[in-house]
Amino acid sequence: MHVLIAPDKFAGTLSAVEAAEAMAAGWRQQAPDDEVVTVPMSDGGPGFVDVLHAALGGELLAVTVSGPFGEPTPATLLMHEETAYIESAQACGLTLVPEKERDPERATTYGVGELVAAALDAGARKLVIGLGGSGTNDAGAGMLAALGATAKPEGALRSGGAALADLTEVDLTAARARLAGVEVLAATDVDNPLLGLRGATNIFGPQKGVQDDRRVVLDAALERFADLSDRPLADAKGAGAAGGLGYVLLLLGGERVPGIETIIDAVDLNAHARRADLVLTGEGAFDFQSASGKVVSGVAATAGEAIRPCVVLAGRVLVGIREMRTMGVESAYSLVDLVGADRAMGQPRESLVALGARVARTWSR
């Protein structure tokens, strides 16, 4: 039997690479004669570069950039021929800041701009920037500053979202010149606009630490920035991704593409699925959000096109059979149901190995 294992990360516990290896180890324990192929996945958030490096090869470039509050932060970008793959979360990710210290009103995307500059210095003519898992809400203004954009008052672009309320002028000339002739793709799993009830601040701000009574204020600050840059573009799909990083990439001439489709094409998942008898995928929480451009739905759709069954292994399964079938998932198995919440979080790899073996007992020939 040929089994394809293509999971996302299990947020907070296992990377996509680690999750795929654990699922494979469990399967091989139970069915050692089966052929198991691992293809770790991502939708543009944390793990984007690692997944692409595992699939494409290429050269990893280590750089030090500014973190969300200006602290030196190690990051890595992937150069494959003349294309640079950048994971924005490495410079402005929510996981870089302890929960009690999160402050999206001050956090900046300046480090993302430094990553872009490093890629350009390395000769990149195409940038694919994964958006997801950010701890920022500055509409990408910090990234613009790192690429040479200026504003009045001076320094407002790199001081976080709240500082944008004081803007009187924005000049994008230098940043646009820096990216002249370079193709830019913003790979994201969301299509929210920058502003309003469905925008970056109101939808994603609370999980980053934006207080309810500050949402209107911060949204207005981003609107001020948009008014001085390109207000109609703020309504574009994906402009609200990664706290508004999507907006700035569109502002610089970029194009928004679904993150999962970017990975599916890069790893040639369609070909892998056609060779498989069964496709396994997984993530930390298999819930209603999984249907919206996430790895599980993308892998399930690919399996469906190849007429192969798709099974999900997840930390928690929070959808019913009807919702699963709508996504093209045959069955789903929960770590918490098998080993309990404490062990699932405390021993994630061992727990996922056990779940992989459990699934193999049911599905292997």
Rank of each mutant, 00 (worst) to 15 (best):
L194C: 00
V39C: 13
S290Q: 05
R158N: 03
M143K: 03
L115V: 09
F48K: 05
V248L: 09
I5K: 00
A239S: 12
D227Y: 05
T64I: 13
A146D: 10
D43K: 01
P32M: 09
L280R: 05
G45Q: 10
D227A: 10
E330W: 02
L78N: 06
D43Q: 01
K126P: 03
S88L: 14
L250C: 14
L52F: 07
D8F: 04
V63L: 14
V37L: 04
G130R: 00
G140K: 02
M345H: 12
E71W: 11
R349Y: 10
A291H: 08
F48A: 10
G111C: 09
L179S: 14
L179R: 09
L4N: 03
P193H: 05
L197G: 10
K126A: 11
R256D: 06
T136Y: 09
L56S: 14
A266P: 01
G140S: 03
L338Q: 09
D33M: 13
M1H: 05
I307K: 13
M324D: 04
G113L: 11
R125W: 06
E283A: 02
K294L: 10
S66H: 13
A55W: 05
P309I: 12
A107C: 12
L120K: 09
A163N: 07
R256W: 13
T83W: 04
F288E: 14
A141V: 08
D103P: 02
G320E: 07
T136G: 13
S159H: 05
E81V: 08
R231H: 11
A156G: 02
C310K: 10
V295W: 08
H80T: 08
T173R: 11
A19V: 01
D277S: 14
I260L: 00
R215P: 07
V312M: 14
V3H: 00
K294A: 07
R176A: 06
V128N: 01
I264E: 01
D171K: 08
A285M: 08
P193I: 04
L335I: 08
G123W: 02
T64L: 07
R158V: 01
G160T: 01
A156S: 15
